[in-house]
Amino acid sequence: MIEETAITKNLVCKTPAFRLLPLGFCAGCHYGIIFRLIDEVLEEMELKGITVCIGGGGCSAMGAMAMDVDAFGGPHGPGTAIASALKRVCPDNFIFAIQGDGEQGAIGLGSFVAAAVRGENITIITMNNACYGMTGGQLAPTTPLGMVTPTTPEGRDQEMAGFPFHGPELVAPLRGVAYAARGTVHTPANRQRSKKMVKTAFQKQLQRLGFAVVEFICACPTNWRLSPVDCARYIEEKMIPEFPLGEFKNVEKNEG
């Protein structure tokens, strides 16, 4: 499938069956870890044959491009609307959308909340890297207060740009939502917790319980201008206090 290199030769676990390798992510970016994690869950749950993945714009689009499942990629923001319709037309397929934080909290906020309100039986994976990674690290809805970005040169100020956006917490109270959680992959333990979250979220769709969303806090070393190790520290010290980890909702069975 892919050429063996010094890196691939020494891997402790097998390379995922990606359509596109190597992934074009920056060094230290967490996206690759997360996409691999999702790929593992799809594999373990034997969902790949019936899966359609809807990718967004920006860096998160590469996940849809890479995973060896049917996928559509490109539009920035409306992934939940696309996934909603496809799931309704093909209820026996497994449909999930990958969204950036800007897609979910800004340009696609309407579609995200509307799909949650309708209780669409789809799964959303959100990539929260606190900025617009591909366009140059500008202010995202999830940028922490004080963080310097090209469009908040003095740091995010609530007077000007409001407070950080919390997607899972926002939709958790809605009756159509079956699962809402947030994880990270910046430590092995967190990676394992987050994998369980993805598994649980996918389960909700198979059980037809409604809308499920898992947000990942991800490092963006390039735009944060930090080393990968310092990124992990930033996540501990700045991101997690703002964006608490854990499950905000977990509906076990249909309310009827």
Binding site: P78, A81, I82, A83, A85, R88, V89, S111, A114
Partner: peptide, 24 residues
């Protein structure tokens, strides 16, 4: 079949896109 009233025209056309991906 499926009738869905969307949250706006922008979403309606994206739903059209999403449903059309199925080949229906």
């Amino acid at each position: 079949g499926c009738f869905l009233q969307s949250e706006g025209e922008y979403a309606a056309a994206y739903m059209l896109l999403g449903a059309a991906l199925s080949g229906e």
